[in-house]
Amino acid sequence: MESVLYYVASAVAVFSSIMVVTRLNAVHALLYLILSLLAVGIVFYLLGAHFAAVLEVIIYAGAIMVLFVFVIMMLNQGQKTVIQEQTWLQPRMWIGPVILSSVLLVELVIVFVKGEDAAAGQIIDAKQVGTTLFGPYLLAVELASILLLAGLVGAYHLGRPTTESQQQRETEEET
């Protein structure tokens, strides 16, 4: 039963990921991306990684995707970009990378099929993850916090509006 659910969820994940890459409208692609992340969350759940499944839904499909939605809304893309993408996405342009990626995929699948065939593990609950996270991996937690702080500072620096002195400098450079 779990295996049937798993294959359905993975089919959804793969299909929606393909749709993400092929959509012309950014908002449609974003919806497919959320669908893909949710499907992967279900896969995590079926694997017994309940904590990872919950985090996938809350942080990935929730928080990170909301950032994308905000930015797409701020950029206010319309029909103009759809037409632009239509002219960019010609088959002669993307057929090469597609073939190369398919070859890589076939190689990977062959390697895995030839390898050891084993049933996927057991349930690992949040308690087990927590004790390991704050035991041997304590340094990694600290490093992650530093990474997030750096991301915060960087995002603030990049996201602030240009100051008047900067604009003056740019106009001077142009003239």
Partner: peptide, 28 residues
């Protein structure tokens, strides 16, 4: 559950390849 390791890694490989294709193909 009884999902073979092979199938899980194949799923991860497929998703990764789709993402890689997207990075290579899209210009937006």
């Amino acid at each position: 559950n009884t999902i073979p390791m092979t199938h899980g890694l194949a799923l991860a490989a497929m998703l990764f390849s789709i993402g890689l294709t997207g990075v290579l193909v899209r210009r937006n």
